[in-house]
Design a binder for these strands. Sequence first.
DNA 1: CAGGCCTCTTGATTCATATCAATCGATACA
DNA 2: TGTATCGATTGATATGAATCAAGAGGCCTG
Lengths: 247, 247
Amino acid sequence: MTQSISVRQQPAISKASCQHCSLSNLCLPLALDNSEMSRLDEVVNRDRIFNRGEQVFGQSTPFRSCFAVKSGAIKTSMITESGDEQITGFFMPGELVGLDSMSDDHHASTAKALERTSVCEIPVDQLEQLVHVLPGLQHHMFHLMSQEIRNSHQLSVLLSKNTAEERIAALLLSLSSRFRRRKLSPTHFNLPMARNDIANFLGLAVETVSRVFTRFQNQGLIRARGRDIELLDLEALQVMAQGTSQP
Amino acid sequence: MTQSISVRQQPAISKASCQHCSLSNLCLPLALDNSEMSRLDEVVNRDRIFNRGEQVFGQSTPFRSCFAVKSGAIKTSMITESGDEQITGFFMPGELVGLDSMSDDHHASTAKALERTSVCEIPVDQLEQLVHVLPGLQHHMFHLMSQEIRNSHQLSVLLSKNTAEERIAALLLSLSSRFRRRKLSPTHFNLPMARNDIANFLGLAVETVSRVFTRFQNQGLIRARGRDIELLDLEALQVMAQGTSQP
DNA sequence: CAGGCCTCTTGATTCATATCAATCGATACA
DNA sequence: TGTATCGATTGATATGAATCAAGAGGCCTG
């Protein structure tokens, strides 16, 4: 039996300011000094809470704000005209959601909380004004958006070039490095999302995801008990993720 | 026999300025008034020419500039560690290439000319400064980058949810609307890219692309002679592109 | 004008993964 | 406490597109 004491994220004793937020070195404040940070503080709508499954915004929602994840996790997806969902990203604490919507007056995607999640809401009109007086923030915004493009291209590569095993290895490693970034264990963590979401994101059937997990387990690459995941052989996973196309 | 007089794009009698460029209503100047445009003019490196197959930049190139396509066409791709290419986008006149690289000091992708192509080079450090004094341009840059994220997400949807036929229909329609935007015929145009590139971009084998083209032709949806394409039934293509998943 | 080299097309076979079907376990529910 | 519901797993079968193989049509080059 594993300890089943749920290690809930304490909502960080933030005095409702970026300065005191434990994520300030990951999130937007990363690019700012203290005085600049307080400018940002003024426009941020702190601590909006969403329960698992609740929608942060939808494709029909007018676009007013971006959201920084504070705790929990969010998935974004596009719902096609024929009604099915394609998950386009998972967002963890310190990451910014909604950057794909800045080219329109309504959101380009739907964002849902994967678990109980708290976010900081950042109104875009105020963000744009702020960016205008804080060159560092502007640069950082370009950086973030560019990163987002790159991630998405990377996803395209995964979807069109890689096998089921390679895709799943890549996802596990991506999650791992994001946990590491937050100074959490990169080898033992809880998946914030269901198998279903993984399958959808990676363009696979749930059954395939399940099979690959058990295969990985039999090969001694991981240990998986539901959402509790342990990566036992990072190197092997890295090799796997890269794909070995040419002989 | 079709007229084989090649309708080469005249390099627009641009007096080397955005004001006189025929693309000013599509490209960056879109967001600017005349005085602002001349500021942009000062930083743009005009009329760099690349022949078919030549590289505009590569993944190892230090990132200094974005490029606006003036005539011709460009493909961008990511080369994976295992050495194979995944095309991430096609860029036509009036479109901006290189936005995925603003988060790093080297390019995130490789850009190659698909045919003889002229581009305007825009040094990023100067662009960032300019953006800082021209709020309209800043807004537009956010818009463009956001659009790029959206496009890429759209590609992911295509790759993971749609059949070969649906993907190809979608690509043809995307090209069509981009020709329309430039006031060219949306139903009769020359593909700037080879079948190979289409296949790669859409995550298919060349043979599959070829087969789908002939199938479409037999169904009376298109007429295809090599790169010369005529869309005969836009509506049917639209229906096809959306995919009919649920019964 | 012939030869060589691409690009594109067409046909036959194979394979990875989807789909269909059933069971199991856990959590929620009343 | 039993029952309904949902998520995950496992097995059997079907299939869309890849791969393998070969030929056809252009286009350049010597």
